[in-house]
Design a binder for these strands. Structure first.
Lengths: 232, 232
DNA sequence: CATGAATGGATAGCGATGCTGTCCGCTATC
DNA sequence: GATAGCGGACAGCATCGCTATCCATTCATG
């Protein structure tokens, strides 16, 4: 298959595919002539994956590049591989995914740098206690944990420090979902499939859960405030 | 307080604050002279909220504008208000939140437009059955439900149609979290606080849950693959 | 084997986004 | 009255995700 058909099948414009090739999101096609390449089903699959991570997952092109590099990296123990893949998916959500890298000038940001503020210290302590209480085997400095710290600190700064009271419920639900995820992932046999499942499950799973949470909220809100039936 | 102190307190550069003022994310300060304004605690609070939605929530400036308009809108029944606020928070996650608005040229996108593809049709059906089974009171065409449809269709397209098997578990967890959220929200008395709680809870709650899910996955993965203790 | 469309590859440009920098005339404060 | 900061307007900038243009080559078709 040549680039035109790849484009037709996936709905992605040819110049965009070329762009992804340049950025390394898509491996080069097999050259049949000095300037003629052919693409296979793997390319199509990969391309769809890229689009899904972009459109549904909200990852940046650069982030997708890193993640896919991890997917294609065939070394290391499985657990670490999964951890690496999952870890790389965090920051996109941790800092909003847009723009990026301006941390030096936000004194109240309280994230990485030098002098953590009061909210961050408290949040870090709370997270540590949560991990302890749950018995989670998480290495200190884990990026997801750091993202959680940042989110909690942010909540506190916004005057919603009370939100931490919900943490246990959230954690309970997350644990359930996390187990489910792992079961799903564990069905894979080939290592590459496995890592891909982690990526897909993590990124699109976030979107799925977020949507479900909104729906559940709407229902809960209907129950609580709109005693009359909805206008359906 | 003048703009300089507002900047010092929040860590947001003065020109950025001016920019937010221009964009309507922040109400104008009270003019004490033709060219001298003073800002209060409300401004500081609002500014922190804006930054949190931007950095942790990943919302665009434009989206924040709309959401804040909803927060400040004091009419309409509570339930609808909540729905409106929550609804406005969906698309950011549904399409990745970046760039945006290019749906006409992606034939395989399967979202809004004219001819929904097979994956979308199946996903829509699955979602309808889920809502039915759960007894959720959700109006047809709800944006969160549409986002879920899009995410499931995307999963199918990527070859992870099997992911739908996890839906019930996800929904169960989401329901739990949704109830928790509503309890939290219901503590508010003033209507404005209430809507703000919805916004904060929804947006930052996503970040919190996503982080917790990653952590739970790491733990589950450790249990499953790394029988030896982690290198802590 | 001539012709037109498509290809691979390279480079430049575009539109949106989230700021940032500069300038102005004014004001508050010392 | 000097100096710092202010509000307001507007132009500019860096990043991102494409998109457009160009070129020589190759393929499909008659």
């Amino acid at each position: 298959m040549r680039i035109g058909e790849l484009s037709r099948r996936t709905g992605v414009p040819v110049p965009t595919i070329k762009y992804y090739l340049r950025e390394g999101l898509l491996p080069a096609g097999e050259l049949t002539s000095p300037n003629q390449a052919s693409y296979g089903e793997g390319h199509e699959r990969r391309l769809r994956l890229v689009r899904a991570l972009l459109e549904v997952g909200g990852l940046s092109v650069a982030a997708i590049g890193e993640v896919l590099a991890a997917v294609d990296d065939k070394d290391g123990p499985v657990h670490e591989l999964l951890g690496a893949a999952a870890t790389r998916l965090v920051p996109e959500f941790g800092d909003g995914g847009r723009g990026g890298g301006r941390e030096a000038d936000s004194r109240a940001g309280g994230d990485g740098g030098g002098a953590p503020d009061a909210e961050t210290v408290l949040a870090r302590d709370r997270v540590a206690r949560l991990i302890e209480a749950r018995g989670w085997r998480i290495e200190p400095g884990n990026k997801a944990a750091e993202a959680l710290v940042a989110a909690l600190a942010s909540l506190a700064r916004v005057g919603h420090g009370g939100f931490v009271d919900l943490l246990d419920d959230y954690a309970e639900a997350a644990e359930r979902v996390g187990r489910t995820d792992l079961d799903y992932v564990a069905r894979r046999v080939a290592r590459e499939d496995l890592v891909e499942a982690v990526v897909v499950g993590t990124v699109l799973g976030d979107a799925v859960f977020a949507a479900l949470r909104r729906m559940a909220q709407v229902d809960a809100s209907a129950q609580m405030f709109g005693e009359e039936a909805p206008r359906a």
